[in-house]
Design a protein around this nucleic acid. Structure first.
Lengths: 201, 201
DNA sequence: GTCTATATTGGGATAGAC
DNA sequence: GTCTATCCCAATATAGAC
């Protein structure tokens, strides 16, 4: 099985880059973690540079999450029922998705603008596309809220989820000691009281 | 003036660490930016290692913000008036403070848990203390909201501000293209409709 | 307090055998 | 496809003159 080694390098890189950073991870370590002899050039059979692995790792994670999102949405039941319950459920799933992206977010946090093309790609695929998608799904749930307002609202909600996830990752403990369930409940408590379609009927 | 050089090293380190990371910044560069000859050991007259500069930079920034916060609060007028206007004004100031912390946040994002003691110090001084402080100031504005709810609520608000600031810093553009004023307005629009003291009277 | 010069090391990358 | 061996450079850190 030829490419199994390549996948093991990617697995090792995802974990090592997230915990110790790209600069902080010698290629030697990736070789060792992938079952190659440390210090041998084995790595270079699969990637030319460390940044090439980085890009491959990031793209593989994005693909993985896209696929998971598609699957999840296909499994989602018809959206009938109490809009505020729908909103809370969606917030919970959104937070779970972000948490599954923990290692990727840790890597991006560290690398920041070092590779602008990669940052732009992530911004578009993970942030902006998700934002448009969520705004389109939220709007029909709200009554007399303009589309532009729904857009800003989703930006606020997404920022809250991202900020919570990042802060938890940085410090190892959630801000204020607020556990995920309570966080989602508090956020839903802010969003749900808006005039929803049910109530405005 | 003996310590002027030390301050210039700190200035250079704050900027360089924020943009290129600690690992990505050779001590040589700090020397050059501080007006010393690159490659000379001039740096070592003031700091023993790069991590020692890092800690000094982080603490200086925290001190600076603490001082600014104290000053700002002393200048704040008596909180009479419309609670929702007070809330929006506070959110705006909170976001401005976070943006002034941009370089520090960029540094912390990159370093993550590499120096746990430093991370714990920042978590307590910048996040947890601010959260307790804000919760104590928000609670009297809200009517029939429990103290525990106010606490969770402030965690959500702070997460939103942090997420917005970090995302803007990472990608160079605010999430969804929502500019700070509109972001604050949207967030205030979520918080202000809660039962405030004025309305419940 | 700052310089020139340099010792030293860690790690990226390659050549060529197996 | 993986190994041993090695080249090479960048960057930390020090010694000692000025």
């Amino acid at each position: 099985m030829a490419t199994a080694t390549r996948d093991r390098i990617l697995d090792a890189a995802l974990h090592a880059f997230a915990t110790r950073g790209v600069e902080g991870t010698p290629i030697t370590d990736l070789e060792a973690a992938a079952g190659l002899a440390a210090g041998s050039g084995g790595f270079y059979r699969y990637f030319r540079t460390k940044d090439e692995v980085l890009a491959a790792v990031v793209r593989r994670e994005m693909d993985r999450v896209d696929a998971a999102n598609l699957e999840e949405e296909a499994a989602e039941p018809v959206p009938g029922g109490d809009p505020s319950a729908v909103i809370e459920a969606r917030l919970g799933r959104g937070l779970a998705t972000l948490r599954s992206l923990g290692p990727l977010m840790a890597i991006l946090s560290r690398e920041q603008g070092r590779i602008p093309e990669l940052a732009a790609e992530v911004s578009e695929r993970m942030l902006e596309a998700g934002l448009r998608h969520d705004a389109a799904r939220l709007a029909p749930l709200l009554g007399d809220v303009e589309a532009a307002e729904a857009h800003d609202l989703v930006a606020v909600i997404l920022s809250a989820l991202v900020g919570y996830t990042l802060a938890t990752g940085y410090f190892g403990t959630p801000p204020g000691g607020v556990e995920p369930d309570r966080f989602v409940a508090a956020l839903a408590g802010l969003v749900a009281p808006l005039p929803t379609k049910e109530r405005s009927l």
